[in-house]
Design a protein around this nucleic acid. Structure first.
Lengths: 112, 112
DNA sequence: TACCGTTATGTTCATGCAAATATAACGAAT
DNA sequence: ATTCGTTATATTTGCATGAACATAACGGTA
């Protein structure tokens, strides 16, 4: 059994977490379902937790990441802003590159 | 206020954590003080927690990382093995490189 | 107006993790 | 044999995080 390197990266703004893997998953689910409650169900987390995460994201970000509407046709919904999309894409890109980087570094402990 | 990228890396062995930043700090403190209890004090963690960490490290590693002696002159002590030193150095190296790597990636969100 | 599905928010309960405390085991030195 | 400082281990207490449940607010539609 050989050693493995694991990693986690996240983006902070003023010492508050803005984006991590979980939040990005949630944002993608919102984009797919068009609603926060459906996104929460698809990720098997409570609506409340999902709402808290999105609230934290929007409070930490410089510009709104989602637009949430209450009431109306279908009861309301949520969707990503263009800015939110940019953040998600940037995070995904950086995260993927980080994996590749650590895959190279793995050589340094292969012999141990 | 600009966004920052934070990261954490750790080495796993068979789905058990072997080394992370905290464990590396502890191992270095052991090397400096020659004892687990002194190392725990210097890091402001309880002896029990320190012991559990070291126990986990030694159980996860392929070869012993520390040698702990009970009783005798001075009551006993703990020291790093050469293998432990290699692991610590490898972790530090990879971790430092990871910081530098992410510092480059930071450009991708500077504009956001 | 009544309904509907959603966002938004509060409250209680459980569960796991950390902290604190206590104590046993050990072996060299005196 | 006693002392000493350390490693090793168990038990309890407290706290923080999340799960579960309940409910209000909203605004289009019929």
């Amino acid at each position: 059994m050989s050693y493995k390197i694991k990693s986690r990266i996240w983006i902070e703004s003023d010492n508050n977490v803005l984006l991590g893997e979980g939040r990005v998953h949630l944002l993608k689910a919102i984009q797919e379902t068009g609603s926060l409650s459906k996104a929460a169900k698809s990720l098997n987390i409570s609506y409340k937790k999902a709402w808290q995460l999105i609230d934290s994201v929007n409070k930490s970000a410089k510009k709104p990441v989602t637009i949430n509407s209450i009431g109306g046709k279908g009861g309301g919904g949520a969707e990503l802003t263009d800015y939110g999309l940019s953040l998600v894409n940037a995070f995904d890109d950086i995260n993927k590159n980080c994996w590749e980087f650590l895959d190279q570094q793995l050589e340094k402990i292969k012999l141990l």
